[in-house]
């Protein structure tokens, strides 16, 4: 199996790569983790990872700067149903649009919008930064060996407001409920950073590598 991490000029590629290598080393499978920055290399990939650190518009621009990438991603993820994991802004890009620095269109694969985390009182600091517990009701293989209330690492100022609540698999609480994990068929997205969430994060990535949507 070939897992491709997309490098589009934004994002902590090295951290993500390292954590995927670690997770795959724990599995008794032949898994190759590769970093991809062009369309040709993407073609032979079985599972796609879209990391994201940075501003939404800058990330979207980065994707569009790679000729043919957005179209090929659509073909592979939406038409061919290849497993996809978006991390942080990589998840937010699934939305229709974001209100960060104006209005920017997203991929529109999961209906909803990205807007600023609502600040409740002066005590509440934004970005939402640090380890926070996630809550989920539904059982799903992505949570294999992960308990409710386990902590993951978050670092964001904007949140994904998903239109259809059925696509929200887990939430976290910071002033109000915030989308932590989205799931739609073969597409998973996390607001937190599994690559930075130590052993729990590595377990999550391992679950993604084993996941057969």
């Amino acid at each position: 199996m070939r897992v491709g991490i997309i490098d589009y000029g934004s994002g902590n590629i090295r951290s993500v790569f390292k954590s995927f290598e670690k997770a795959s080393s724990l599995l008794d499978k032949n898994i190759q983790i590769v970093i991809i920055d062009n369309v040709e290399e993407l073609k032979g990939i079985d599972k796609i990872v879209l990391p994201g650190v940075g501003a939404f518009s800058d990330c979207m621009q980065g994707l569009e700067n790679i000729n043919g990438l957005v179209d090929l991603l659509y073909k592979m993820v939406i038409e061919q149903s290849k497993a996809f994991l978006g991390i942080c802004v990589g998840m937010q890009l699934l939305a229709n649009f974001s209100k960060e620095y104006g209005h920017t269109e997203g991929l529109g694969w999961i209906e909803g919008e990205v807007s600023a985390i609502e600040k409740i009182g002066p005590e509440m600091k934004v970005p939402h930064m640090g380890w926070n517990s996630i809550n989920f009701d539904k059982k799903h293989p992505i949570f294999n060996r992960i308990q409710k209330e386990e902590d993951f690492y978050f670092a964001h100022s904007y949140e994904f407001n998903v239109k259809n609540n059925n696509f929200v698999l887990a939430k976290t609480y910071y002033g109000s409920d915030i989308t932590a994990v989205v799931l739609k068929n073969n597409i998973i997205g996390t607001q937190f950073h599994p690559e930075k969430s130590q052993a729990t994060g590595v377990q999550f990535i391992k679950n993604f590598l084993e996941w057969a949507p």
Partner: peptide
């Protein structure tokens, strides 16, 4: 830096 890489960075 915040515009390019996000405030959290």
């Amino acid at each position: 830096g915040a515009n390019k890489f996000g405030s959290q960075c």
